[in-house]
Design a protein around this nucleic acid. Structure first.
Lengths: 233, 233
DNA sequence: GCAAAAGTGTTTCTACTACACCCATGG
DNA sequence: CCATGGGTGTAGTAGAAACACTTTTGC
């Protein structure tokens, strides 16, 4: 093995955090401002950062997510590592990296993590320069994000679609504690890219022992109020 | 962001190559010899190595697999990255790394790839010190491999189980060009950890347009010869 | 002729699909 | 009173599971 070919890349984690607003799938992005020849340029990126020495990847993902969004105790699941040498070749990204890290960055290999959280959780920031916000996943797909973050989000989506198929319980991570069957159905349809039949879906839910009906109805809707349910164990 | 915490780990790839001998699931391992205080110690590891500068992860996995096993043009699929700081803490592994790489190794983050190949492909080596051999996956689980390679294999197994469920066509990567339905069923059962009913399985295969019967029977078996089939597109 | 694996049909049960109308509420 | 979404049952179909005996071949 010839040593001159061995490289020491940087390693980072990126978190793709999904939410659901009752209608559409959302993802958390961080605002990024780049000073390019005294022109300020704004765009968005995933919450992510370089890992620390002696820090496990999973631990790093949790730390970074908390630092950049304020979210704590989130279950993050690793889905893929992105290692193309081209992913840090865009001059704008290189500039931003050098400004924020004060390091000479050659190459970054990043590991993607997904999380599914209730959208009503407050996003907080530990620095004034960081702003984390929810964005429509569909809108984001049309935007140009930092690095290869568009691609990372698509892989993340693919991952949660697979995960939800194996563990339907994960859907409830995205719903409020009390939810209607319509909300559950809309979420199910958005994730699986289908259009479920209302009656068949009711039957399906009725057979889920872990979805229990409450003696409580929606309030303030301009139509018949729907019954509320919650997820139990 | 404080720079003193930023680390430059090494990055490697490890390939979990599965095969099937008609009865059991197999995996390729490389013999490793460690000179510990003039005592030679032998154990086994996955084919894997550090990536090169400006080399994409996928490309690296292919290069490493060819270098260590002689296998070319294999479809490798990334499944997970292993980044625990403890994975390179075993003194025996550290010793081996320093002897073979001539580098001072602190930490290695490795990305796992799986492949499924026909077991009759010849394994060749580009150096006398490297020996790649097929091993029973079940036997390997009881052995103590280098680094966290036992764990990597388990994740790889999990990955191919998921993959095969989504794309049953992948099963044929593991079978010889001509195979019997028994072989296909045994493979199916090994991968999915089930025991299929013989008649139901025949029906299932009959409904697979991509499995075509040949006018040819097995030879040299001490019982009624089975019809041969092949996978078509 | 016997050991060993190949091959073959029917019935049952379950899960998914399609489909239309009345109900409750707010404005 | 009307617009909006909530809630309900039945019939048909397709796929999975259970189950036992006869056939072919080598030795």
């Amino acid at each position: 093995m010839s040593n001159e070919n061995i490289f020491y890349p940087h390693v980072s984690v990126d978190c793709v955090v999904f939410g659901f607003d009752g209608e559409k799938l959302k993802v958390i992005l961080i605002e990024r401002t780049i000073n390019e020849q005294n022109e300020l340029y704004n765009d968005k990126k995933l919450p992510g950062s370089l890992i620390f020495n002696e820090e496990d990847l999973d631990v790093s993902a949790n730390r970074v997510l908390t630092e950049l969004t304020g979210l704590k105790n989130i279950y993050l699941s690793q889905f893929r590592t992105f290692g193309s040498p081209d992913r840090t070749k865009n001059p704008r990204d290189v500039l931003w990296l050098e400004n924020t890290t004060k390091l000479k960055i050659g190459r970054i290999i990043t590991t993607g993590y997904v999380a599914m959280v209730k959208i009503d959780r407050k996003l907080q920031f530990n620095s004034d320069t960081t702003t984390a916000k929810w964005h429509d996943v569909a809108e984001v797909a049309k935007m140009s994000l930092a690095f290869d973050h568009n691609e990372i989000i698509q892989w993340g989506l693919k991952h949660i679609r697979n995960q939800v198929e194996i563990q339907p319980h994960l859907l409830f991570e995205l719903l409020p504690t009390k939810f209607t069957i319509s909300q559950l159905r809309t979420l199910y349809d958005v994730i699986n890219q289908v259009k479920s039949d209302v009656r068949n879906f009711q039957k399906k839910v009725a057979q889920m022992p872990y979805v229990v009906a409450l003696d409580e109805l929606e309030k303030g809707v301009p139509h018949r109020a729907a019954r509320l349910y919650r997820y139990k164990k």
